[in-house]
Design a binder for these strands. Structure first.
Lengths: 213, 213
DNA sequence: GATTATGATAATTTCGACATTTTACTTGTC
DNA sequence: GACAAGTAAAATGTCGAAATTATCATAATC
């Protein structure tokens, strides 16, 4: 889904690069470098960075430019807790409200995730592909929650968590689909077993927090 | 607290104008109009709007510019529910973690809010002042929750809710400090009575939802 | 009469250059 | 030697115009 504006495209690329930690925590994002890297002018760059600043994925200080956000264990714990909190609530609603199309999308996304999981990703790019499927599956889970605002907030927490997860991965921690969590989540969701689904999700998200410790 | 960049200043002004519904739901935000209104060039305008888009306070469609977000009763209910959900969680943490400086800030903000509440605001501008104090009090309540991410998410929900609240106000609904909610919240918070505080907050937020019905 | 081309107008988006501020370095002083 | 002041270089932020794209009224076709 390529956007029609340059600013939109560079936004997407920046989002990817931030989530995959192409820029270290706190690193300054200089315009001349970025201009070369993405081959765009300053105007769309600043727009993309401003939008990311609104999302909390870069920080901006007046007259001092943009930076990749700092990273700390405390911050990570808070983000994990928030994601857990939001995703559980959204999942509960989705299980209550979801219809046939929700189920269909869910099994489709699970299928793609499973295909991607079979081959252990080796390069950063391969891992990006896996993360996309992983995100798609979790989004499909909560998509039917009915609240656009909740979905946005969840997505924000999920993106920030992904950044930390991949920081951990760079240090050798692998956390790909432990204990068949995703398959169990799928089954419980389709069976409309809210209690079981929430418990699995809680463990699933909680476990990812340990990997950075 | 005036920001050093033009983009930052126009961001703040736009935020105020959006919250006070200077632009109707779905209204297109044309650049020539905005340029005149705020007396700035397009570059800082676009940056401010992009940042607001990241926050979800304006919508952007490629090549079709920016718009004030649509408004619907359903959306409002979801935002109210989210705000309740987030603010209760944050308040619970704040009551558990807050120290002396939290209490001090809280009583100070309550004092200012009370002063502002004594005079029933008449103009839109006077109401903006009241809203600022109101926001400050609620922020002081949750400030000590310990999680920067949670605070951001809460602030986002609160701002969106304010927009709807003031939309209701324009239609003649007054919802200023009913039943001494704020004083009772203050007392319960200082007394570290989490259970009572959460119940008051739940009612307090819930009541504002009715005003648009 | 309804629907589809067509062109003029208006709007958004982008670029390149300029102004302003920060940063880093050098020099001078205690 | 440490610290402060001043200066050059680099980076951010801003403007005005150009390029691209959408919008809307008008004319043409089925």
């Amino acid at each position: 889904m390529t956007t029609s504006t340059i600013a939109g495209r560079v936004f997407e690329r920046l989002l990817d690069d931030l989530k995959s930690n192409q820029f270290g925590p706190g690193e300054r994002l200089k315009f001349e470098e970025m201009r070369g890297r993405y081959d765009v002018g300053v105007a769309p760059l600043r727009e993309a960075l401003s939008r990311l600043a609104g999302l909390g994925l870069v920080t901006q200080v007046g007259q001092k430019g943009f930076r990749a956000p700092e990273a700390s264990l405390k911050d990570y714990e808070h983000i994990i807790a928030s994601r857990k909190f939001l995703e559980k609530r959204a999942l509960e609603s989705a299980i209550a409200n979801g219809g046939d199309s929700w189920e269909n999308e869910l099994v489709a996304m699970f299928h793609q995730l499973q295909k991607a999981t079979r081959i252990k990703p080796r390069t950063e790019q391969e891992y990006s592909v896996w993360e996309r499927h992983h995100t798609n599956f979790h989004r499909a889970l909560v998509a039917a929650c009915g609240s656009a605002w909740l979905l946005n907030a969840w997505r924000s927490a999920f993106d920030q968590a992904e950044r930390y997860r991949r920081l951990a991965m760079k240090r050798g921690h692998w956390a790909i689909d432990q204990k068949d969590d995703h398959e169990r989540l799928l089954r419980a969701a389709i069976a409309r077993d809210s209690k079981v689904a929430l418990r699995i999700l809680d463990d699933h998200i909680g476990r990812s927090a340990i990997n950075l410790g």
